[in-house]
């Protein structure tokens, strides 16, 4: 099964609120994707580099 995470989605999945631009911004860095069956049980991880 497939789950798509779109940074442009309305819930701003990759972004944090940025005070200087007064907008949601996706900052460069290493993002960790955690996959599993609860918040505390995510045995599968992967890293996404945003530059």
């Amino acid at each position: 099964m497939t789950i798509t995470i779109d940074a442009a989605a309305t819930h701003h999945p990759f972004s944090a609120w940025d005070y200087s631009t007064r907008a949601f911004v996706t900052k460069p860095g290493e993002y960790t994707v955690h996959v599993g069956t609860s918040a505390d049980s995510t045995p599968h991880t992967a890293t996404i580099t945003v530059w």
Binding site: M1, I5, H11, F14, V33, H34, V35, A39
Partner: peptide
């Protein structure tokens, strides 16, 4: 079962994980 995807966002002050997607099958 519900497959869940969380994201760790590398910004100071962000908690370890946020839910970003899920799907029940």
């Amino acid at each position: 079962e519900v497959l869940q995807v969380y994201l760790g966002v590398p910004v100071p002050g962000q908690p370890p994980k946020r839910l970003v997607g899920f799907r029940k099958t």
